[in-house]
Design a protein around this nucleic acid. Sequence first.
DNA 1: AATGAATGAGGGTTCATTCAT
DNA 2: AATGAATGAACCCTCATTCAT
Lengths: 227, 227, 227, 227
Amino acid sequence: MRLAAGQPNNSNWMIERGVKKTSRAERKARRPHEILEAAFEEFAAKGYAATRVEDIATRLRITKGTVYLYFPTKDVLFQEMFRHAATSSADLSTAIGCLRGSCAERIRDLLLIAYENTANDRKTRELLRLSVAEGARLPEMVDCRHELFIAPTLAALTALVKEGVKSGELRQDTAADTPDVLASSIVQVAAWRLMSADREPIDGKALMESHIDLVMHGLVQPSGRMA
Amino acid sequence: MRLAAGQPNNSNWMIERGVKKTSRAERKARRPHEILEAAFEEFAAKGYAATRVEDIATRLRITKGTVYLYFPTKDVLFQEMFRHAATSSADLSTAIGCLRGSCAERIRDLLLIAYENTANDRKTRELLRLSVAEGARLPEMVDCRHELFIAPTLAALTALVKEGVKSGELRQDTAADTPDVLASSIVQVAAWRLMSADREPIDGKALMESHIDLVMHGLVQPSGRMA
Amino acid sequence: MRLAAGQPNNSNWMIERGVKKTSRAERKARRPHEILEAAFEEFAAKGYAATRVEDIATRLRITKGTVYLYFPTKDVLFQEMFRHAATSSADLSTAIGCLRGSCAERIRDLLLIAYENTANDRKTRELLRLSVAEGARLPEMVDCRHELFIAPTLAALTALVKEGVKSGELRQDTAADTPDVLASSIVQVAAWRLMSADREPIDGKALMESHIDLVMHGLVQPSGRMA
Amino acid sequence: MRLAAGQPNNSNWMIERGVKKTSRAERKARRPHEILEAAFEEFAAKGYAATRVEDIATRLRITKGTVYLYFPTKDVLFQEMFRHAATSSADLSTAIGCLRGSCAERIRDLLLIAYENTANDRKTRELLRLSVAEGARLPEMVDCRHELFIAPTLAALTALVKEGVKSGELRQDTAADTPDVLASSIVQVAAWRLMSADREPIDGKALMESHIDLVMHGLVQPSGRMA
DNA sequence: AATGAATGAGGGTTCATTCAT
DNA sequence: AATGAATGAACCCTCATTCAT
């Protein structure tokens, strides 16, 4: 006996009879999120052009067609994925508010937090890769990353340095105008990890500590600074 | 002076008018180089997968087929291009030999030279982009870049720091063990330029100076270091 | 009844008018078979290299891409096609079992059956063409044909001749050692048809009868055999 | 100093000074022949479509361009090659005139000669392959082969059989009308060799002898023919 | 909602043919 | 006469996208 032609070939009858674990509604609500996560993995691993929509679907054990139910084109999916990944990453603002101690201590802690959330966080690191790789294709992408990650950190850094200079704890110097250099080792670690792909792991934390020590106290013997 | 399109392809008229400058042999000898240069531009701009061999050819006003006379596959072309671009870039070794002054001065000069040749040199910068973007695809590529650019610079840096520590000019500290952090601002500038694509130009030189000043003398007031 | 080109691709009108006979599933199940058949026609007509995958597709009113849904490469398609065509061709074994009469009669009937299934069967004949044309490319192809067609026939022939010699019905002679020559006219007819392409049709059956008569009774007058 | 424009870039100055072994004229006269021979080898080995003009040139250690000096297109080259190979093959007519002995003996000798010149001659055998493989493409090719090889042999065979029947040496039978079947084993051996590609060599001569014996004296015991 | 068969627009690569040297 | 760089038309194969089920 064949199914009547008018009847939709409802493949979900199991669900309706209580066999389900997750309701259809739940599933549907979760789908976009799942797809964005899968897209992140694939795009990060292979880049935009080399990633096939089917690869993303397969990762979720669904089919291409389903992806297109939620995102109209590969391009849109990529952008949404980027925005999603950038947004879902850890939020620095609360951490920044909790800093205690001298300016130097707070700068140090801020840098370490930023490091943990950037160079040491795989997701954020891969977003950096995509920004570099596909940056020319999607300028807004870069701006998005900048606004969410970099700008707040730099703002906090700038504020801290200003405060320190005012209180006399920190030197008033050209460096005070470009506090971004304080964070340069974060980028360095991230870049290294992106390129070495774990073939030559480095101790990022140690490198951060070294850099912080350096930018705080300088390489040159203080006596030498008399001149 | 461009050739008129309708011109009969008389084999001699060009010669007779002195228009001909490049003989066939010359042209052929130059072709591989030209193609590698064009490939560099295209691959750097769009990445491996998104670049069409035809784009590379069109840039030289030749056809796809001609490219394949010199390189057997797109993949080989990419690798050769990378090697070529990496090799043809400026050589630091001579510059390193000419450094004069105190250790601090020489470190400063070395960093500025490295900056000029890396973050401030478009070619090298784009190689960094490719290393990040396609690094997973071609680990050797990254190693190639590392050996040619980074290793020598770091070696020189390490030697200078050691010398300075020995002579007492520089502090003996954890930082002395990881001299790479001295160069972190180079990576930072490079990364910034790769991502902003000149939409938000930065004064790389000033940033370098700031960073060098910082890592040399520290952000913290020297009096605070007595402890 | 063909579909009008301008017809809106309304998903239901065909069903409602009873035009739809093949469901999607049926169609899919049939596709590999259809493609193999179409491939047979094209490859047989033009040879491997000169056949375009698109030709095969067009024959089925589908597109190239669809062919690649079922066969990964042109090469695999060719091999599968060959195997399919060889396997699907008539099976001699049952026919061989039904032979009755004297050895001479059974040999005669066997040869005629083999003729019908080989030289007189277009499919088998074209497989012979492919074996000759592309044999160097694919030795296994030839072996495949040999095992399926030739070996069984020769085995039966050998058995019959042995039986006849034992019973005294047939001459014991060098010919008894190489019963394959009994079947040579089959090859001859097949070769002729492959080359003349029906421009000069021959009466294969008559030729077979002549040959069988000859190999049975000899061209030479029996009295002349005294010498 | 560059060559004057009017002077032909004579690369053969060595020849003119007596360095040569073969004069340019000789060379030129031989070229078409050489190319046809090389074309035969390549086309026979790979078929028309799969053979590249460059393969043919390389075999002669010349370049593609040179081939095009003598033959306007690949297609023409193929046809000329076929005609050349067919023509240059051994001529049966003289051999046929030398036959001596009874009709049976002369038929036997004729078949053996035809075998030597056809199934046992690599060149002729490969022409058979091409006729089968590309026959549909070029009907004239097949006719060419037919006229040169098959027709004369069959004519001689027919004449001999007629003569034998008239003189009473040979049976008057249906077989006398289709003397081609006498030659069927030649085709059989040729076909076998073309397909097995020497992987399973057969003793063609023995097979020929068997077949001749069979068609002459029959497989059935002469006593059985009394009935 | 989900599927996956089908499409068709390319992109990589090959190769017959041309032509300046 | 000979070369071989260059061309451009195909051909194989892939994949984003659609749509009937």
